[in-house]
Design a protein around this nucleic acid. Structure first.
Length: 486
RNA sequence: GGUCGGAUGGCCGAGUGGCUAGGCAGAGGUCUGCAAAACCUUUUACAGCGGUUCGAAUCCGCUUCCGACCUCCA
């Protein structure tokens, strides 16, 4: 296993060598979507980023159990531990059952993930499917003395926890500062401490999504589901826990506290946080109204978009930035990625047309080594892509007859492309050249060649221009004619 | 206000104490019936001011600006 993989760990704020607890197995947990509305592009970036991580771990030969949850209960409007959960609110607005909301947006999420060629996780557990586990966990935390019940709601006692544990381990903040910036407890507030958060919430009479518990009818708090489900499927301590950076300060901080209070161990060894997608420098978010839905991006049907971009162009765009950097969205940047992606794919399409020579002007081993170096350095996909464009130049040069590859290097080049472009980056060719459409194109190209051989340039140009209007670009060369979608 | 992270050429975006990132765009050239593509060459750079160093865009300090989190968000 060529594994000198280093991963940036939010817990230590440094890059660390990746050493699984129980190799070759790797446990990976990622906080999934809350399915009360459509996923926007920023959400997608996180899942594409972890798809890259998952794919590379698989490529290295690890047996990865990838758990990514669906939050379908307990996520409140405003994190004040009061009011409605997001599903009930949306359901009331649309006059449907909350679980209809859950179903609709879960299906939508899966559809979008497929378009982005994001591999499904090994297990995709839901919060509503693990109510019993969550209740058990809350009971244990209470028994361990880190939670208390008030009128059917159970709160986590942050103050008590922080006497023996580092509550702010992920964010390095001072507890006093947190306290200073938290609102005053009102007279009617049930919480003992300002930072306390709900593990279990008493259902109001009108609340539809509710389950029986030792504390009466209620529903789980937002954070407890991830603790309960990650420990159920990956163990009390597992290898990697991931999510968007925005979750670190609250959700993940509380997850760690709950898990510690329950199991007396850190839940995850490596905490990985992906950065935000921005628009004009500001974070894309649901509430700011600057979010794109994937469908709007694909069709170009949005005021900020000049045209539509294909899912693979968008995936490529995302992978051209490192997952821990913000990525700024713009039409210009998408255009550049679109052309770059097509350049990459056009070169790959030429790969099968290359004929091996007796000698080789290029050494693919070096490029391969650099590709691994890039990915081993905290999954540096932009550097990987830069290396792959080196391979693109080699392919084009050989195709132009200005350089040669022997059989061994040609085979290595094909393996390199398969491994890194398709397996690790998860890119796909959006138009297959071998299907019926491709056969049809071959036929048209032969017709045009006949015309050209007869010096009937009027006909050959007509064919070329007509195809261009249909969005298909012909390219003549010594080896023959190829085509690509514009 | 607190914590954290940024500021790289026309745009996006890597990286690093001395060696070309890459993509897109621009310029010139080669090839070509035309077109496109490809290939070659090439212009524009590391926010500002100090300091450390033989040498800093890269380390340190200060300044300015920006963002994220601290209230729901991947």
């Amino acid at each position: 296993m060529k594994s000198k993989l280093v991963i940036y760990n939010t817990l230590t704020r440094t890059k660390e060598n990746f050493t699984p607890i129980n190799p070759p197995f790797v446990g990976l947990y990622v906080c999934g979507p809350t399915v009360y509305s459509d996923v926007h592009l920023g959400n997608c970036r996180t899942f594409v980023s972890f798809d890259l991580i998952y794919r590379y771990l698989l490529h290295l030969g690890y047996k990865v159990r990838y758990v990514r949850n669906i939050t379908d209960a307990g996520h409140l409007e405003g994190d004040q531990d009061e009011g409605d959960d997001k599903f009930s609110k949306k359901a009331r607005l649309e006059q449907v059952e909350p679980m209809e909301i859950v179903q609709r947006y879960t299906l939508g999420f899966h559809h979008i993930m497929q378009l982005f060629n994001v591999l499904p996780p090994s297990i995709e557990p839901t919060a509503t499917g693990h109510i019993a586990e969550q209740i058990e966990m809350v009971k244990t935390i209470m028994n361990n003395g880190y939670a208390y019940e008030v009128n059917g709601t159970v709160y986590f006692d942050v103050e008590k926890y922080s006497k023996s544990h580092n509550y702010t381990v992920l964010t390095n903040r001072q507890l006093e500062d947190l306290l200073a910036n938290t609102r005053d407890l009102g007279g009617q507030d049930e919480k003992h401490g300002r930072l306390d958060f709900a593990l279990w919430i008493k259902a109001k009479p009108e609340h539809i999504m509710r389950w029986p518990s030792p504390w009466g009818w209620g529903f789980p708090g937002w954070h407890i589901e991830c603790s309960a489900m990650s420990s159920k499927y990956l163990g009390d301590t597992f290898d990697i826990h991931g999510g968007g950076m925005d979750l670190a300060a609250t959700h993940h901080t509380n997850e760690i506290a709950q898990s510690q209070a329950c199991h007396h161990v850190q839940p995850a060894r490596y905490w990985v946080h992906t950065n935000m997608l921005t628009v004009n420098g500001a974070r894309m978010s649901k509430s700011a109204g600057n979010g794109f839905l994937p469908q709007e991006l694909f069709t170009g049907n949005h005021p900020l978009l000049e045209r539509g971009y294909s899912p693979m162009t968008v995936r490529f765009f995302m992978l051209q930035a490192h997952y821990r950097s913000t990525l700024d969205f713009s039409n210009e940047a998408l255009d550049a990625s679109d052309k770059g992606y097509k350049r990459l794919m056009n070169a790959i399409a030429l790969l099968d047309k290359l004929t091996p020579a007796a000698t080789s002007d290029f050494d693919i081993t070096n490029i391969r080594e650099r590709c691994y170096q890039a990915m081993n350095d905290d999954f540096n996909s932009p550097v990987l892509i830069a290396e792959l464009f080196e391979a693109v130049r080699i392919i084009n040069t050989v195709y132009d007859g200005k350089g040669s590859l022997d059989q061994q290097n040609l085979d290595m080049l094909k393996t390199l492309i398969r491994d890194f472009v398709f397996d690790v980056l998860g890119l796909t060719e959006e138009v297959a050249q071998t299907d019926d459409f491709g056969k049809l194109m071959d036929f048209i190209i032969r017709l045009r060649l006949d015309a050209k051989n007869n010096k009937d340039y009027a006909t050959s140009d007509k064919i070329r221009l007509q195809l261009q209007e249909l969005g298909i670009q012909l390219k003549d060369s010594k080896e023959g004619t190829t085509w690509s979608k514009v």
